[in-house]
Lab assay of single mutants.
Amino acid sequence: SEIVVAMYDFQATEAHDLRLERGQEYIILEKNDLHWWRARDKYGSEGYIPSNYVTGKK
């Protein structure tokens, strides 16, 4: 599975969105859409994140 790191904070506005915290790692579950990826955080929460807010883990 692909691990990404959040470059920016993202506040979830929709129920299906996942909040991003800058510097935290997330697991990508689905990339069915170019701009919104389904991800899981370290607490096990899942939701959609803006793909341009994250970068591949170095």
Score class of each variant (00 low, 15 high):
residue 51 S to A: 13
residue 44 G to I: 03
residue 34 L to K: 14
residue 30 E to W: 09
residue 56 G to Y: 14
residue 50 P to D: 05
residue 40 R to W: 03
residue 38 R to M: 11
residue 47 G to D: 00
residue 8 Y to F: 12
residue 21 E to G: 03
residue 58 K to Q: 13
residue 53 Y to T: 03
residue 53 Y to N: 04
residue 57 K to L: 13
residue 14 E to C: 15
residue 27 I to M: 11
residue 21 E to H: 09
residue 22 R to V: 12
residue 13 T to G: 08
residue 5 V to D: 00
residue 25 E to M: 10
residue 2 E to I: 13
residue 33 D to Q: 08
residue 5 V to N: 03
residue 8 Y to R: 13
residue 33 D to N: 13
residue 20 L to V: 04
residue 33 D to L: 08
residue 40 R to G: 02
residue 48 Y to Q: 07
residue 7 M to R: 09
residue 38 R to I: 10
residue 17 D to Q: 15
residue 8 Y to K: 11
residue 28 I to D: 01
residue 24 Q to T: 04
residue 26 Y to Q: 00
residue 15 A to R: 10
residue 45 S to R: 15
residue 18 L to G: 02
residue 13 T to Q: 12
residue 47 G to A: 02
residue 52 N to D: 12
residue 20 L to A: 00
residue 26 Y to M: 01
residue 47 G to Q: 01
residue 35 H to W: 12
residue 28 I to M: 02
residue 35 H to F: 13
residue 27 I to C: 09
residue 55 T to R: 12
residue 49 I to T: 02
residue 55 T to Y: 11
residue 43 Y to H: 11
residue 57 K to P: 10
residue 37 W to M: 04
residue 39 A to S: 03
residue 46 E to K: 03
residue 27 I to L: 12
residue 1 S to N: 13
residue 12 A to T: 09
residue 54 V to T: 05
residue 49 I to N: 01
residue 8 Y to W: 12
residue 16 H to N: 13
residue 31 K to C: 10
residue 46 E to R: 02
residue 27 I to T: 11
residue 4 V to D: 00
residue 11 Q to Y: 14
residue 42 K to T: 07
residue 12 A to R: 07
residue 27 I to S: 06
residue 45 S to A: 14
residue 44 G to P: 01
residue 28 I to K: 00
residue 1 S to M: 15
residue 7 M to W: 07
residue 5 V to G: 01
residue 48 Y to T: 07
residue 19 R to T: 15
residue 43 Y to L: 08
residue 44 G to L: 04
residue 40 R to P: 00
residue 34 L to A: 14
residue 31 K to N: 07
residue 42 K to P: 07
residue 48 Y to K: 07
residue 25 E to C: 12
residue 20 L to C: 02
residue 2 E to P: 08
residue 31 K to A: 08
residue 22 R to F: 08
residue 8 Y to Q: 09
residue 58 K to G: 14
residue 7 M to I: 14
residue 54 V to H: 01
residue 12 A to L: 04
residue 50 P to H: 05
residue 39 A to Y: 03
residue 26 Y to V: 04
residue 26 Y to K: 00
residue 8 Y to D: 06
residue 7 M to K: 10
residue 46 E to C: 06
residue 56 G to V: 14
residue 20 L to F: 03
residue 53 Y to S: 07
residue 5 V to W: 10
residue 16 H to C: 15
residue 44 G to E: 03
residue 21 E to K: 09
residue 46 E to I: 09
residue 40 R to V: 07
residue 12 A to Q: 08
residue 39 A to M: 02
residue 16 H to G: 15
residue 53 Y to L: 12
residue 23 G to P: 00
residue 52 N to P: 06
residue 24 Q to W: 06
residue 57 K to Y: 10
residue 35 H to K: 11
residue 12 A to P: 15
residue 9 D to H: 06
residue 37 W to P: 00
residue 58 K to S: 14
residue 45 S to G: 12
residue 39 A to L: 04
residue 24 Q to G: 09
residue 20 L to T: 02
residue 17 D to N: 15
residue 47 G to R: 02
residue 25 E to D: 07
residue 44 G to F: 04
residue 16 H to T: 14
residue 9 D to I: 04
residue 54 V to N: 02
residue 26 Y to C: 02
residue 7 M to E: 06
residue 23 G to W: 06
residue 38 R to V: 10
residue 31 K to H: 06
residue 30 E to G: 06
residue 11 Q to V: 15
residue 21 E to T: 10
residue 7 M to F: 06
residue 43 Y to E: 09
residue 23 G to F: 07
residue 54 V to G: 00
residue 44 G to H: 03
residue 35 H to G: 11
residue 37 W to V: 01
residue 4 V to K: 03
residue 12 A to S: 12
residue 32 N to M: 13
residue 16 H to K: 13
residue 55 T to I: 13
residue 36 W to V: 06
residue 41 D to A: 02
residue 38 R to H: 06
residue 40 R to K: 09
residue 3 I to R: 09
residue 5 V to L: 09
residue 11 Q to E: 15
residue 36 W to D: 01
residue 55 T to D: 07
residue 37 W to R: 02
residue 47 G to I: 03
residue 24 Q to F: 09
residue 28 I to N: 00
residue 1 S to D: 13
residue 22 R to Q: 11
residue 27 I to F: 10
residue 37 W to I: 03
residue 38 R to S: 03
residue 43 Y to K: 07
residue 20 L to G: 01
residue 15 A to E: 13
residue 21 E to F: 10
residue 56 G to I: 14
residue 42 K to A: 09
